[in-house]
């Protein structure tokens, strides 16, 4: 059945694929990064990365396949799998404690860092944040609900079974929500006892594991109000969907997009160059308007439509509450066990 010819052909192709990467190496420096998929990935691949490669005369190998952190952990520290790691803030903290990424990226390495809002380089951030989303409440506009003004509105008994949040052990939005419950119903973000009690009160509640699922739950009407990041709602702007986003008066939680460099990277200059490039006003504008992220760079001027909704002024930025991931990660196991028990019952 399998002729000799196909076998020979197979091995020839195998040999060719084997040889290919080394040829690439010989041509140009390669920058290995992680990046998101979806719309973000499309813009990166179509515009941002090609332009960067051209300007810096290099090749970018962008990994869009999860899980980045375990892959980085499993690779040798002196020859890491990535030069630049792009994740949310909580994972950066994990990597930092294991020595996988640097502590800070400053204006010395990436000059554009000089122009960012304080939240992007605050003590809650390792590396540097290049964007943030605001975690607040998404809601259906066709269910006779008043636009929520407080996080407490999610506890409205009318919403029993129609409110949504995330599976806390696997989703950082869920973790943010838990901390927020501590702040509203207790002494602060770190008041876990108050948070557990408040969580108990939110039952029955629909929980999802992927962030993207909450959008679909809102769109399909399975959930009437749920914890969500602003970009997950604003991306349907102009599509006539009966959903909207509300920023509660107590403040919104920050969901930062963080870039960082691995200490073992062999192309550190290029890596810093990439971070600087990502902070350039035109790159920031392109991506911010593409996926509805609030830019870190103060100098970015967004079109009016985006400017109206995203956190583009000092005043709006002041509503951002940044979670202390170092604190949270240190007790994550206990919290996971506790919330699993609460939500199972």
């Amino acid at each position: 059945m399998i002729s000799r010819r196909t076998l020979l052909g197979t091995s020839a192709v195998a040999a060719a694929t084997l040889a290919a990467p080394s040829i690439l190496h010989a041509q140009a420096k390669t920058l290995k990064i992680t990046t998101w998929g979806g719309k973000w990935g499309e813009i990166m691949k179509a515009t941002v990365l090609p332009a960067f490669e051209k300007e810096f005369k290099c090749t970018v190998s962008a990994d869009q396949a999860f899980p980045y952190v375990p892959k980085l952990q499993a690779s040798p520290k002196n020859d890491p799998l990535y030069d630049v790691l792009h994740t949310n803030s909580n994972e950066q903290w994990n990597c930092f404690t294991e020595g996988l990424v640097m502590q800070k990226i400053t204006a010395k390495e990436a000059p554009n860092v000089a122009d960012v809002y304080p939240w992007a380089v605050s003590d809650k951030i390792v590396g540097v944040a290049i964007f943030t989303s605001a975690i607040g409440l998404g809601f259906r506009t066709d269910k006779g609900l008043a636009k929520p003004t407080s996080w407490k509105d999610l506890a409205d008994p009318k919403l029993a079974g129609a409110r949504g949040s995330y599976i806390i052990p696997v989703n950082s939005l869920g973790q943010c929500h838990l901390m927020m419950l501590g702040k509203i119903y207790g002494k602060g973000l770190q008041d876990l006892d108050a948070a557990y009690k408040a969580l108990e009160q939110l039952k029955p509640i629909k929980l999802v594991d992927f962030t993207g699922q909450m959008e679909k739950m809102l769109l399909s009407g399975e959930v009437s109000m749920g914890v969500i990041h602003d970009s997950g709602v604003y991306r349907y702007d102009g599509q006539n969907q009966p959903v909207d986003f509300a920023s509660p008066s107590e403040g919104v939680m920050a969901l930062e997009q963080v870039l960082n460099v691995t200490p073992g990277s062999k192309v550190k200059e290029l890596a810093f160059g990439y971070i600087d490039y990502m902070l350039r006003p035109d790159t920031q504008k392109l991506l911010a308007e593409g996926v509805w992220y609030s830019p870190a760079n103060k100098k970015v001027k967004l079109d009016a439509k985006y400017d109206a909704k995203l956190l583009t002024t000092e005043a709006k930025v002041a509503t951002l509450i940044q979670p202390d991931w170092k604190w949270y990660n240190a007790r994550k196991e206990d919290i996971d066990a506790r919330v699993t028990k609460i939500l199972k019952g």
Partner: peptide, 22 residues
């Protein structure tokens, strides 16, 4: 763990796609 950027197999691509566009 074994796929490389631009060399992802269908199940991996689907899994990652799901995280952003369901």
């Amino acid at each position: 763990f074994l796929v490389v950027p631009k060399g992802e197999t269908l199940p991996v691509v689907l899994f990652n796609y799901m995280k952003f566009d369901l």
